[in-house]
Design a protein around this nucleic acid. Structure first.
Length: 430
RNA sequence: GUGGACGUAGCUCAGCUGGUAGAGUCCCGGGUUGUGAUCCCGGUUGUCGUGGGUUCGAGUCCCAUCGUCCACCCCA
């Protein structure tokens, strides 16, 4: 295939056969978020590069090597958003929405990261992003997690489990980080090359290493959980208590750290064993310092991002992707007069039965071909209108999915007859 | 960014130690001058991912490149 008709690497089409699973997730999430009092916000896909550097952290992988950055014609450095939180916080500040107000917001759309694609990891990918602003928690932390748990159960997704941790305040995390670096420096000869590199940039991530040879040394490392400041400790204990009281199982993972710099205190991650190496389905945490860091009035916040492609994959694997819904009625026309009258007839049927799906044979074709199309369309019922029927003021009705015979029906009664014939079939969801 | 596997019809795939590309499916037409899933008959479809090289001759061997998948890394 020539290069210009290939999609850009890591950027995928969602085809009609797959789109049902996306719609189910989207409508389910919309409904659920509304029921928890969250409002939708839409923000640009492009922001100033500096915003992401400030928010996410200049020395994170996301900013350092994964951002789609470009200079626009005015000479400004802009970037395709690699995540949504920064843009939403910017919107709250630029629209003067803080001033002590609380906001519960969600946002859905594409994100961009220049990574090497693999299963569950794409260069353009979609997230459902949920943010609660102006609430210090831990009550909102627990509610947000409960919301995600409810989404899984509504979608019938079972292969996920929850891990939580607390990163403490920036101060306590900084103190812990010193201690951790000291420990790893003392064992530097035992570290692999990845871990040595992280010692400078992000020593907390060493704890997350997948290298089995590192597990012994990691097991001996000081734990973040043991170095929390008293308020963070209390916050975290309260969160755990609420989760227990509402019956959401979780595992405390003291090695759970997040990749973006802005997180503090509560972090959580829903992980799965069904997606290969990309096991994070939905993750987030508290970012109490972020808004102030961006120049807004100091305001606490917590949020999470859900990987839509990953959740859709789980939905499909669970067998809960809705099947493509075929037409209810296929209309076969024959002869010049009937062909011309066909569209008028179907338009009247659509007026009478707005929830039903009508597939009018388009593009001609002989009877055999039209019936073949009718069959393959999956329609339950064929309506046949030929010049003969037209001149007698009737149409023929033929059930395609059972052995009931063909019948004729006067045109004025056709809609009622179709409604009766389809009575046993599923009406489409709105 | 690093490593491994793989690219043959729209789709799923076959193609021996190099000899000039095949099956199923799909689609279209006919058998049935107005009746579909089966059956029978017929038909269309390929720069063998791309570009070089070796050879009398390359889908097959070599090199490069692009793409897909998987893992590392990173993360949703």
């Amino acid at each position: 295939m020539t290069v210009e008709v290939q999609p850009v690497r890591g950027m995928n089409d969602v085809l009609p056969a797959e789109v049902g699973a996306w719609q189910r997730l989207e409508s389910c999430a919309r409904e659920l978020l509304a029921s928890y009092g969250y409002e939708e916000i839409r923000v640009p896909v492009v922001e100033h590069t500096a915003l992401f550097k400030r928010a996410i952290g200049e020395y994170t992988d996301v900013v350092e090597k994964e951002m789609y950055t470009f200079t626009d014609m005015g000479g400004e450095s802009l970037a395709l958003r690699p995540e949504a939180t920064a843009g939403i916080m910017r919107a709250l500040i630029s629209n003067g929405m803080l001033r002590g107000h609380r906001h519960k917001l969600w946002c859905m759309g594409p994100m961009f990261r220049h990574e090497k694609p693999q299963k569950g990891r794409y260069r353009q990918f979609n997230q459902i992003d949920v943010e609660a602003i102006g609430l210090p928690g831990p009550d909102v932390d627990a509610e947000l997690i409960a919301l995600t748990a409810r989404l899984w159960s509504r979608l019938g997704i079972g292969r996920v489990r929850l891990e939580i941790n607390s990163l403490g305040t920036p101060e306590s995390r900084h103190a812990y980080r010193e201690k951790l670096v000291g420990y790893f420096r003392a064992h530097e000869s035992a570290l692999d090359s990845d871990s040595r590199r992280r010692l400078e940039g992000n020593p907390l991530r060493i704890l997350d290493s997948k290298n089995p040879e590192m597990s012994a040394i990691i097991a001996g490392a000081p734990l973040l959980t043991d170095h929390l400041d008293p308020q963070s400790r209390e916050h975290f204990d309260a969160l755990c208590a609420v989760l227990q009281s509402v019956g959401i199982p979780f595992r405390i993972n003291p090695r759970l750290v997040r990749g973006l710099d802005y997180y503090s205190r509560t972090v959580f991650e829903w992980i799965t064993d069904a997606l290969g190496a990309q096991d994070a389905v939905c993750s987030g945490g508290r970012y109490d310092g972020l808004i102030a860091q961006l120049g807004g009035e100091p305001t606490p916040g917590i949020g999470f991002a859900m990987g839509v492609e990953r959740v859709v994959e789980l939905l499909v694997q669970a067998g809960n992707a809705p099947p493509v819904r075929p037409a209810d009625v296929y209309v076969v026309v024959s002869g010049a007069r009937a062909s011309a009258a066909g569209i008028g007839l179907v338009e009247r049927l659509r007026d009478a039965l707005p929830a039903r799906r009508f597939d009018l044979n388009l593009g001609g074709g002989n009877f055999k071909a039209q019936f073949r199309r009718a069959d393959r369309s999956g329609a339950a019922l064929a309506v046949i209108l030929g010049d003969d029927e037209l001149s007698r003021g009737v149409a023929a009705l033929k059930p395609l999915r059972d052995e009931a015979g063909q019948s004729e029906c006067p045109l004025p009664e056709l809609a009622a007859a179709i409604a009766a014939a389809l009575a046993g079939t599923v009406m489409p969801a709105k």
